[in-house]
Nucleic acid binder design. Structure first.
Lengths: 179, 179
DNA sequence: ACGGGCATGTAACTGGTTACATGATTCA
DNA sequence: TGAATCATGTAACCAGTTACATGCCCGT
């Protein structure tokens, strides 16, 4: 729902064209998240269908039209509800890394290799991100925060992989096998 | 792709019915992730369409049929590729918490309240998870690991929210306003 | 004249998700 | 007999995503 609600939030500042929304969305996230223009329009269609936005047609100089989207009352309600709501309270997401590692542990002899490969990949991502953090000091706030979020998430995932190693080692020991 | 690849991974152990796959999937994740049975069948249909699985019909005692799914060569290839691949290497995900907070910072006067609300929600989730960690000591490995992952992720998100507060405070100061 | 940015859309597809319907088997 | 579990499916919808096509406008 991030795209949908994101567009709603951008419209709270005032009416805008689809194309403008794309650019604002990317600016607001420091260019870290790209948004295909087409997706803006499909999402706006759905928002219109649901009564969250309304459209006013500006006649352009030529024959073309510009569609100016603005929030409706229900749209504003949905937005407020979103900002007020806690994220992810209901049911933990099926994260891909977790699914992969858990299934590897349960069903593959080379589980440790799978874990090691993921750790290596995350570490290299982390290096790249840290480099970017050091370089772009005076970066846009949004961009810096997105990077920070990525770094923290990766660190968490690395700790989790360590935990997976430790617990599976315990498991092997508990079951008495030396190998 | 977690469901699709998850089913593929479970089939690597040998043929199974759709219903069995649902149960195995839930067992393998310690019951933390539920899977609607219907989704197993729709996903299996798509896997069959893509040539990743093949189906053998077991005639049951009655008139009913049981469909036994098994991996094909392409299916095994896709699975191996998945286990070998690094997760999330391409383009950072548009995480809901991040979108929400960034847009709040950029477009709302009550950004700090939004952040505070999310922090409170995460903290209460964390408490609940920690309680569960202490209680279910001898829990199934998978379940414990899922819980651990949730805890680590939440801790990371909390640190990120702190970072957001700090940086926005810096920002206000840099712009010279005391409020 | 032409390229690049602004602007709008559509068609098609993906995977995830739910609600619903059906029937067999098992066991109390 | 009747509930629980095993088992299979379908119809419908959702949001996300991409590729593609169209055309205006402006500055070089």
């Amino acid at each position: 729902m991030s795209v949908r609600l994101g567009l709603l939030a951008l419209l709270a500042d005032g009416p805008a064209y689809g194309y403008q929304l794309k650019k604002r969305f990317e600016q607001n996230t420091g260019g870290a998240w790209k948004l295909n223009v087409g997706q803006v329009y499909t999402t706006l269609d759905r928002l219109e269908r649901d009564g969250c936005v309304q459209v006013a047609l500006d006649q352009r100089s030529g024959t073309g039209e510009q569609r100016s989207y603005s929030l409706t009352e229900p749209g504003r309600d949905e937005l407020e509800a979103w900002f007020g709501a806690r994220v992810g309270s209901t049911a933990p997401p099926r994260d891909e890394l977790q699914v992969k590692v858990l299934l590897a542990i349960a069903h593959r002899a080379d589980a440790q290799a799978v874990i090691a490969a993921q750790r290596a990949a995350l570490l290299s991502d982390l290096q790249g991100l840290r480099r970017r953090q050091r370089q772009g000091e005076g970066e846009a706030l949004a961009r810096a925060l997105v990077t920070a979020a990525l770094v923290l998430r990766i660190e968490a995932d690395l700790r989790w992989l360590d935990e997976c190693d430790r617990r599976t080692a315990d498991d092997r020991q508990a079951k008495g096998g030396t190998r």
